[in-house]
Nucleic acid binder design. Structure first.
Lengths: 226, 226
DNA sequence: GCAAGGACTGAACAACTATTCAGGGTGAAT
DNA sequence: ATTCACCCTGAATAGTTGTTCAGTCCTTGC
């Protein structure tokens, strides 16, 4: 064999694969999942349509990887924020705020990842990703329950409901569409976080305190632009 | 003109229109919105594909009407339940429970109506319907706030979040899939209702009381099969 | 019965896109 | 320079599904 995969070639191939994924991500961020079609993505990645199929066996696979990637990022952010908090309640508040902020900062992409039309082949992947995030939230709720800060409850269902509330309020079809103003954006995050904390049983006064704490954190402030 | 629309003919036409809509509804209830294609619906309605277009200018219009119809039913049920309640908090609890029960009793249809992939032409109609229901919920929350039972809050956002929580927990992709058992179903309704009430600021103890009250109502009992 | 106007049919059409593949191009070893 | 694998291209293919329309069937009023 006169041809061999040089290190250089391997790198180029990997770069191309990343470029295609990145192109898909950008496309989704601009036009939602529906806009993620092979031809436009290929153009954006400076590649021919056929080439995409040398890297991903099908469009479904491409989108699945995209979803997995974005979800991985979000999950990491949630864990980072929660782990840095001083106690279980604080950690839960941090997790909720992180989801809210992340979701808001890339609304279109979030909408595509969370709820937009995809065919069945993709929904399995999407489901897995969401379950992971829901599981993380459930664990945080559980910790607060065990610490005696919250009443006993079905944490899995609570986590699911919380995520539903956050998503619907912030990116769903009913979400207010004037969230470009940083102040309103911050208000929305606070309001929704407050709702979420109260939902799982945090007393109103304490919940308000946690929300304020979150808002004072540098990371949150930076992301919300407050 | 030798041909005129007899009363009989008018009735037949109306019946056919209803049949098509009903066929669409059944199809959606079985296979989600994606299954609502002209050909299958036509077959189900005992009609040729072309005939559908004599009653609906496009598929989008057909689906829009379907969504409007289902939403109208739900809105009416919510109002009925809430109006029958003795006070604002009770009314809110009734509204929440009604949404939960209705949603659960036709999960697949609800999923299609609420969240499934549809093209843009339809989303306007869907949006309008959801706004109506969200508006009703917001009004109920507002009434409770004015009565001094709840803290002041952004009622529109709260209503949105509540609906998101209910839908995600009960029909969303993360919803538990073992809700066929009536007992579990009732538990799920209670849990989610409790979460929702606490989210808007009902104190834990009082919320639990309201949930129990709802469960004792004949309508709820019948629907939940308790 | 029969003429006229409308309703119904369903095969053909059209538009959109994922996917393929034959042919040209590229990088690596000799 | 040449040859061998492999990679890339993009036009053609194929599958899906909403929509149309020329022909057929019904209903009505005479």
């Amino acid at each position: 064999m006169v041809y061999r995969r040089t290190h250089q070639v391997v790198k180029r191939l990997a770069a191309r694969r990343s470029a295609i994924l990145a192109a898909a991500r950008e496309t989704a961020a601009e036009g939602g999942m529906a806009a993620v079609q092979i031809a436009p993505v290929a153009v954006r990645a400076n590649v021919a349509a056929g080439t995409v199929y040398r890297y991903f066996p099908s469009k479904a696979e491409l989108i699945s990887e995209l979803i997995a990637e974005v979800s991985r990022d979000e999950l990491a952010a949630i864990r980072r924020a929660a782990d840095a908090a001083p106690g279980p309640s604080s950690a839960l508040a941090a997790a909720v705020t992180t989801v809210a902020v992340h979701t808001l900062s890339q609304r279109r992409l979030a909408w595509g990842i969370l709820a937009e039309p995809v065919d069945v082949d993709v929904s399995a992947s999407r489901l897995a990703s969401r379950r992971e995030i829901a599981g993380e939230m459930a664990a945080r709720i559980d910790a607060a329950v065990r610490a005696g800060h919250l009443p006993a409850q079905d944490t899995a269902l609570a986590a699911t409901a919380l995520l539903g509330a956050l998503h619907e309020a912030l990116v769903g079809p009913l979400a207010p569409d004037n969230l470009d103003d940083p102040a309103k954006l911050r208000d929305a995050v606070q309001t929704v976080t407050l709702l979420a904390l109260r939902a799982v049983g945090v007393m109103d006064a304490r919940a308000r305190g946690l929300v304020v704490q979150q808002t004072l954190l540098p990371t949150t402030k930076a992301l919300v632009g407050a």
